[in-house]
Design a protein around this nucleic acid. Structure first.
Length: 929
RNA sequence: GCCGAAGUGGCGGAACUGGCAGACGCGCCGGAUUCAAAAUCCGGUCCCCGCAAGGGGGUGUGGGUUCGAUUCCCACCUUCGGCACCA
């Protein structure tokens, strides 16, 4: 399907030349530059609008058709808002630290900075090719020292803060009150106390250590089979000193503030579930024959009378102490094999409960210790996780299915403490009901019993109401090269010394071997990150003391946690963002004038970042807010998730995928393998190299042009839905663009087409008073529809409305020049290259500048409603006829018109109308007996 | 297992707040143009019965509410996404 054919007319629609011409124009004139407050051409009178895409990781594979989907949507909104008189901030940058470039470096020795630069060059070229209206002067990369200087600066802000529970906010560490008894123990104790309160802290934590990759992985990077998501290497649990960020302190605020955000409910729900707040109680159980007690957390303190045994996690510190000598061998063996498996591997095969008895007993505090019911056995089992609550539970098999399952395996007693309803035939009963077998709680509902028992526990000092979260602190260090160095020094006495702001950026040292020091097997020595290879860099001497640099780097999330702030003022070299710029672009008002919680007015990207990126960025933002560095509570006021674009994968009988270049499509639509004629199966799947179903945007642009690619991606269906790419549909939108071109331009002469008539000529034509002109009415309706659809992000229906209008012009064979101009204006955000050219040709000598500088056209409310409407007439809810009546006809008039219709009269013959339902402009329903 | 979203022609999809189901595009069929084809323009196209006029059915399945249900309620099936022993 060669579109560049020498036999084409001289002035045929040529996407390629229009693209080149107008992109050069935009670049040269800096058409989409967004001035900041303080700039000479800044116009304070205009309202602001910040429209942001999730910035991409510039992978070696280049742009994927999934990228332009979201980028086109935001581009349409950005162009539309500019025409509506907003100052629009619309930017693009690169989330360019990350594992793929580093893996490539390990394999080839090519420095990740070089790979990254090449990939960025490709991405930039491809994005520019699509004509997005970014302010390219604001482009940034997280890997640029001028950028990561400030990532490191923010880390230091977090490091130098503590969380004040009373005021519920972060405060500078210098304001931390030091308890007297700590002060009394000396300087080192004070230092350790302070370090223990920081929002960034070092902790020995069990991590997912992957020897093959030489790095620690986050839980998300480990598969259910306990292997690395990247490369499928084995992953082991081992304790390692790691940087942690105290995100759990913000759990409540992160959950509460979701309320105010204009985000998809599904994303809010995912975040709430991830935070996983639960309310319950902590209860102390004394351990028999030991000077020890077990702290447990439960959401069901009301079932305390039903606790028949205890379970502690294999990692629990009390395990060794309380296990009786005769049980040591069994307990040790069990714990060892449980601890060695990753948490995920452990939970994956959770079918059958396992555990061992420690030989020890605890006293249930609701009974006197002399009472035989008080003494309950303590077991170790891997269904209790050390990382949640206190790592120990009271087991209540009567009201908890997991405990029930365990009790059945090991023959432990079961006591019901909630009366199940009549006919209940399940095992553990989780529902509400009157308490039984529970002494002073008997007869109370679940809520009443919880309240009463918590009061009872608190009065005796053996328990209290408590809140727990699934959310864990954020494991922040990675054993990698290609990330931001963490700007701290480790002193000879183990003290942590943060770098001074003046020492930033701490740049990555040059090394030529990017491999970490890999230990053999499961239990080799301490792994050392690749930065350890830079010997000169890794040690620093100050005042005669030798310090060791932190060798871990930050995770990829770090750079993406604040880039939206940097875009406001990307070249500022004395602040992470200038205050005026931050306030102008981030602070937005609601319609009712109250300040909005969050600054970015539209943040658009895929749902795969629904939890982690968005939660981490919100956390950093709140810390910056608490410390007075930013002016909004939340970073992203409105969030929108685009759906995934998938494509048909064609497989042969053996299940082997085949690409389009090997396939012929028969007339019946079936795909056959060209070589053998075998009919292939077709399934919509995620695009991937291995399935050979990846669509390359360059190919589409070469064949149909950037405007057609943009338009197709928007026309496919709702932005939020996942949709299949169908190569056969692309020519459809291309045809529409071509029809629009020919509507306005005569292909043979290059002059305006014969359809386009001047206003004077039109007014002389019979019956074309401007308001009565049916085309004028249709245009007003189209402008209204397109405007409203852009506002609600329904681009597919906006495009079909414009298609309908163009079809109507073809039928009319005539359009006034001012009408054609308005059509071009509303189409321009969607197909900017085509519309720039049409605008210039329509304006002729009156043309001054880019179509994007023109105001958005209005519609007249009077012209979008028809005076006469056709409505259906139903008889008892069944449509029998259609009548045309004035829009505002009253019920009697509508009824009379209906009765005059033969079909209606026929249906009503011999019957009485019991009820009439008339919705003006909609329908008339005559209900008969 | 739990939570969430979605199921509409041959295909992608449309239908505001319960009011004409299938807009728009693809594909297919027919016509015009052409020596011919491509391209283009015009028309048709949910299914079934019927030459037609006309009639019947229809939004995953089964029930319900309503004058009226793609839309609301209940149960179930399927697909996709998230979580997964969180006490």
């Amino acid at each position: 399907m060669a579109r560049q054919d020498s036999s084409l007319p001289v002035a045929a629609y040529s996407p390629k030349s229009l693209r080149e011409k107008w992109q050069a124009y935009w670049d040269e004139k800096k058409t989409f530059r967004a001035p900041n407050p303080g700039d000479r051409d800044f116009n304070i009178a205009r309202p602001k609008n910040y429209i942001l895409d999730f910035f991409p990781y510039p992978s070696g594979a280049g742009l994927h058709v999934g990228h332009p989907e979201g980028y086109t949507a935001t581009d349409i909104v950005a162009r539309y808002r500019r025409m509506r008189g907003y100052n629009v901030l619309h930017t693009m940058g690169w989330d360019a630290f990350g594992l793929p470039a580093e893996q490539h470096a390990i394999e080839t020795g090519q420095h990740p900075a070089i790979t990254t630069l090449q990939n960025i060059t490709t991405f930039r070229r491809q994005l520019k090719m699509l004509g997005f209206s970014y302010d390219w002067d604001r482009e940034l990369s997280t890997t640029d020292p001028d950028y990561y200087k400030w990532t490191q600066w923010i880390f230091l802000q977090i490091f130098n803060s503590w969380y004040d529970e009373k005021t519920r906010r972060a405060r500078p560490i210098s304001e931390l009150p030091i308890p007297d008894e700590v002060r009394a123990r000396g300087e080192k104790a004070v230092r350790e106390y302070v370090d223990s309160q920081r929002l960034a802290y070092l902790a020995e934590v069990p991590v997912n250590w992957c020897p093959a990759l030489g790095t620690v992985l986050s839980n998300e990077e480990v598969t259910n089979e306990g292997r690395s998501e990247r490369g499928d290497h084995p992953v082991y649990k081992r304790p390692l000193k790691q940087w942690m960020l105290r995100i759990t302190k913000y759990a409540d605020r992160l959950a509460e503030d979701l309320e105010e955000l204009d985000w998809p409910e599904s994303v809010k729900l995912m975040q709430r579930n991830w935070i996983g707040r639960s309310e319950g109680a902590e209860v102390t159980f004394r351990v028999a024959d030991h000077d020890a007690s077990l702290e447990i957390y439960t959401t069901r303190p009301d079932t305390l009378f039903g606790a028949t045994y205890m379970v502690i996690a294999p990692e629990h510190p009390l395990v060794r102490m309380i296990t009786t000598p005769d049980r040591h061998a069994a307990v040790d063996a069990y714990c060892e094999q449980a601890i060695n498996r990753s948490e995920l591997a452990r939970t994956a095969e959770a079918k059958e409960k396992t555990g061992v008895f420690t030989g020890a007993y605890a006293f249930n505090p609701v009974f006197p210790e002399v009472d035989s019911r008080a003494r309950i056995p303590i077991w170790v089992a891997d269904y209790v996780l050390m990382s949640y609550g206190t790592g120990a539970i009271m087991a209540v098999p009567g009201q908890d299915q997991r405990d029930w399952d365990f009790a059945k395996v090991y023959n432990l007693p079961i006591i019901r403490t909630v009366q199940p309803p009549e006919g209940f035939d399940g095992e553990a009963y989780l529902g509400d009901g009157p308490a039984i077998n529970s002494d002073f709680l008997n007869g109370l509902t679940m809520a009443e019993a919880k309240k009463k028992i918590i009061g009872w526990l608190e009065a005796r000092g053996i328990g209290k109401g408590a809140v727990n979260y699934k959310l864990r602190d954020w494991l922040f260090s990675r054993q990698r090269y290609w990330g931001e160095p963490i700007p701290v020094l480790h002193g000879p006495d183990g003290e942590i010394v943060p770098l001074d702001e003046s020492e930033l950026p701490l740049t990555l040292p040059e090394i030529d071997d990017f491999r970490p020091t890999v230990s053999e097997g499961n239990d080799g020595g301490m792994p050392e990150p690749p930065l350890g290879r830079a010997k000169d860099w890794a040690t620093v001497t100050r005042d005669g003391r030798t310090y060791r640099r932190e060798l871990n780097t930050m995770p990829q999330w770090a750079g993406s946690c604040w880039y939206y702030l940097r875009f406001c003022d990307p070249r500022n070299d004395h602040r992470f963002v200038g205050q005026d710029a931050e306030r102008y672009w981030m602070l937005s008002k609601r319609k009712d004038g109250r300040p909005h919680v969050g600054g970015v007015d539209l943040y658009l990207g895929g749902a795969e970042h629904a939890v982690l990126h968005l939660l981490y960025a919100r956390f950093w933002h709140k810390v910056l807010y608490d410390l007075g560095h930013v002016s909004t509570v939340e970073p992203f006021g409105k969030l929108f998730n685009q759906g995934m674009i998938r494509a048909y994968a064609y497989r042969d009988a053996r299940g082997i995928p085949h690409g389009y270049d090997e396939i012929d499509f028969r007339d019946d639509g079936k795909a056959v393998l060209r070589e053998t004629g075998e009919v292939l199966s077709a399934n919509v799947e995620k695009m991937s190299k291995s399935l050979k179903n990846v669509i390359n945007p360059d190919d589409v642009v070469n064949e149909f042009g950037a405007d057609a690619l943009r338009l197709y991606e928007m026309f496919m269906g709702p932005l939020e839905a996942s949709k299949p790419w169908n190569p056969r549909d692309v020519p459809g939108v291309f045809r529409f663009l071509q029809r629009t071109w020919r509507l306005i331009v005569d292909e043979d002469s290059g002059e305006l087409s014969s359809f386009v008539v001047s206003a004077e000529t039109a007014s002389r034509a019979p019956g074309s008073g401007s308001e009565a002109d049916p085309l004028e009415r249709a245009l007003h309706k189209t402008i209204q529809k397109v405007t409203q659809d852009i506002e609600r992000m329904a681009f597919n229906t906006a495009i079909s409305a414009m298609m309908e209008f163009v079809n109507e012009v073809y039928r009319a064979k005539s359009i006034r020049k001012d009408q054609a101009e308005r059509l071009v204006l509303i189409l321009s955000p969607f197909a900017p290259h085509l519309c720039e050219e049409l605008w210039q040709r329509l304006r002729g000598p009156a043309w001054t500048d880019s179509v994007s500088k023109e105001p958005w056209p209005n519609w007249n409310e009077k012209l979008v409603v028809d005076d006469e409407v056709e409505i259906p007439v139903q008889v008892s809810g069944k449509v029998v006829a259609r009548i045309t009546i004035p829009r505002d006809a009253d019920e009697a008039a509508a009824r009379n018109a209906a009765m005059a219709n033969a079909k209606v009269a026929d249906r009503l013959a011999g019957r009485t109308v019991a009820k009439t339902i008339y919705i003006p402009g909609r329908l008339l329903n005559l209900v008969v007996q």
